[in-house]
Design a protein around this nucleic acid. Structure first.
Lengths: 111, 111
DNA sequence: AATAATACATTGTTATACTATGTATTTTGT
DNA sequence: ACAAAATACATAGTATAACAATGTATTATT
């Protein structure tokens, strides 16, 4: 309720951006959820709440952009690994085009 | 309902991004709504629906990031001009820091 | 005279990130 | 040995913002 404007704004910027980040990071690598969140935190300083990540991945699965498989561990809880599908790769390319336009436009107007 | 994934995603990416664009464009210029929408379309190819713009500006006014004044025209409908406040300028700087981090992070992971 | 363009505005819908919460196992600290 | 923190997945409810649709009114175009 009392988050300041910039914090609320950051949360809004993540809408859509997170999907783009997820697909980008999965482009060349397989990850499981917990690992993914840690990885993105290191790479980008962006903190993805677990309550954001798992529903997001389920949406992406439903849209057939990613697949997942359970991998049993020698010890501990099984991990669910996510991979990009072909549809996911193609969709990512379209998103990359849009993002590049957007980022360069914003760069232009903020100079 | 039947918009394809990428179109829905573009709409989501605009959340937050539009606020950032608005504040950036108003940084050095005064604009009225209709003019602003046309200007952004030319500068960035981004189409801001009027039903997005006016509620957005009202939010920014309520947050004291922008002010507005009506300007009567010699002919035609009066125009409502928007200007950044000091709070708006300071807020914009914080947003710019975040955006630069985000944009460079995304650039990094998409290579 | 009709249509498009200019100009501001509101209502209702939809999508998504977040908080809070829950389950369960393993590792670390004291 | 025991408590706390970290690992790992998951869901329910809330808040926010973009958009479509619609509305009012004036001016320019054809």
């Amino acid at each position: 309720m009392n988050k300041i404007f910039v914090e609320k704004w950051k949360s809004q910027v993540k809408k859509g951006t997170l999907t783009f980040i997820v697909l980008n990071v999965l482009r060349n690598n397989e990850f499981y959820g917990y690992e993914f969140i840690e990885e993105v935190k290191k790479l980008t300083k962006i903190e993805i709440a677990e309550g954001t990540f798992y529903p997001l991945m389920n949406r992406l699965k439903k849209e057939d952009l990613v697949t997942s498989k359970w991998v049993e561990q020698e010890s501990g809880i099984p991990r669910k690994y996510f991979t990009l599908t072909e549809t996911g790769k193609n969709t990512l390319k379209k998103m990359q085009n849009y993002w590049e336009d957007l980022a360069s436009s914003i760069k232009k107007i903020s100079e």
